[in-house]
Design a binder for these strands. Structure first.
Lengths: 202, 202
DNA sequence: ACAAAAGTGTTAGAAATACACCCATGT
DNA sequence: ACATGGGTGTATTTCTAACACTTTTGT
C-alpha cells in the first residue's frame, strides 16, 4: 500500500541591481507552488518561473538546494531551488517585491531558506561561472566586480579581482570599448561559456 | 485541488574497510523506501537505516544529496541521501552486498546516484571532519590516512597529510600508544568533536 | 583643471607540494 | 637481522593579500 503526499516547490529568485543583491519576496514569502501529476520537478519549476516572473528557466541559472518535509504543512514535502535572474528581465512593476537581501530588516517567512540560499550562492560563484546569468552578454570588468561584491556583501580589491578572473579564463576581451559618463572607456568582455562551468586553475 | 505523489527515499550507504570504499548495494541497487504519512523525511531515513543495516542514523553521518523526480516511476519523487557507516557496525552476513566502489565492474542500477554520492563525499571530507563517522573513537593517523585514501581513491603523502590534519586541529593526541603486529607502536588520536564541523584555517 | 572610473605590478606571507631517512617493535 | 609500519623536516613553488598611482574621457 502506497501513501502519497502533497509536494511543493519553492524558488528563491535572486537578482543584482544597483550594486545590491535582491530576492523576490512577495508578501515576505518565498514563491511556492504545488507539484502536479505528470510533471517533473524541473517542469514544475519552469512553470513556477514563468508564472512568477514571466521568464523561462534557461534565461537564468537554476539550482536545486535541498528538500524539507513537514507532515503538518500544506506541502508535506517541499523542494527548494534558487534562480539567478538577469536584471534586464526584472520588470519594474514588480519592483516592490524585490527586497535587498543584506539590508532588509523586515521579517521574512522563509528566512532560513533565504539565508541558506544566499550562502550556497556565495559558495557557487567562488568556483563556477554562475554569475554569467546576472550579466548581459557584454559587460565590463567593473560591472562584473560589482556583481561579485553585491553577492559576497563585501568589497574586493580591483587588481586582485581582475588577475583572478582573467587567470581563470572565464571571460574574454571583445576588443570593444564602452564609454560611460565622463570616465575613461572600459574594455568590454563576454563570457567564454554561458553554461555552468567549474572554473579551476589547472 | 491538491495533487499528491508517491515519495521515496534512497540512501547510499558507504563504509571503508580494508583500505577500500564500499557501498551497500543489495541486488545492485541503492536501498529505497517509501515515505509514510506522519513521518518527516528524516524520520523515514532513520527507519530505512534501521531496516537496512540495523543502525540508528546518529551512529554515522547522514547528508541529503538531492531530489529527483520521474512521474512514471513507482516514486514520482525520490529524495537521495548518503550515510557513512562505521566499519565496526557492518555485519559480516551482509558482506556480499557491499561492493567496492572503485573496483566494481558489475552494472549498478543507480550508478549515476552512486557516482554523484561519491563525488559529494570526496568533497565533504576535504573541508569537514565528516570522516569521524568512519573511524572508531580511537585511531592512529595511519588509519585516518587510509580512510582518506580509500575515499579519494589516491595515495597521499604521509608527511603532508599529518601536517595538514594536525594544523586543522580536528584530532587530538591521547598520549596512548597502540601496538600492531611487529611494527613500531603508533600514537592514538581521537576527534576533537564528533559532530560535523567545517574545518578551516583561521 | 578637475571629477570619475579604468587600468596596471610588486612584494610579503601563507599554503601546498615534493621528497628520504631513522625509529621502535615483533619475529 | 630483518620486516613492518610509525614518525619526522626542509626546500620549492604557488597562491593570496595588501597596497598607490597613472590613464582616458566628459564637464
Amino acid at each position: 500500500m502506497k501513501q502519497t503526499h502533497a509536494v511543493g516547490i519553492k524558488i528563491v529568485f535572486f537578482t543584482v541591481s544597483e550594486g545590491k543583491l535582491f530576492a523576490f519576496l512577495p508578501n515576505h514569502r518565498v514563491p511556492e507552488q504545488s507539484l502536479s501529476h505528470n510533471h517533473t520537478l524541473e517542469e514544475e519549476a519552469s512553470i513556477c518561473v514563468k508564472k512568477t516572473l514571466g521568464l523561462t528557466p534557461h534565461e537564468g541559472f537554476v539550482e536545486q538546494l535541498y528538500t524539507i518535509s513537514d507532515p503538518t504543512d500544506v506541502h508535506a514535502v517541499t523542494v527548494v531551488y534558487y534562480m539567478l535572474v538577469p536584471p534586464d528581465r526584472v520588470s519594474i512593476d514588480k519592483k516592490g517585491k524585490w527586497l535587498p537581501v543584506f539590508e532588509n530588516k523586515q521579517a521574512v517567512t522563509d528566512d532560513k531558506i533565504l539565508f541558506y540560499a544566499v550562502q550556497r550562492l556565495q559558495w557557487k560563484i567562488e568556483y563556477t561561472n554562475a554569475v554569467y546569468s546576472l550579466l548581459p552578454n557584454q559587460f565590463t570588468l567593473g560591472e562584473l566586480q560589482r556583481v561579485y561584491e553585491a553577492i559576497l556583501n563585501k568589497s574586493l580589491d580591483k587588481r586582485n579581482f581582475r588577475k583572478k578572473i582573467l587567470s581563470l579564463g572565464m571571460v574574454k576581451d571583445t576588443g570593444k570599448k564602452r564609454k560611460q559618463g565622463r570616465a575613461r572607456p572600459a574594455e568590454v568582455y563576454t563570457f567564454v561559456s554561458r553554461k555552468l562551468t567549474i572554473v579551476e586553475i589547472l
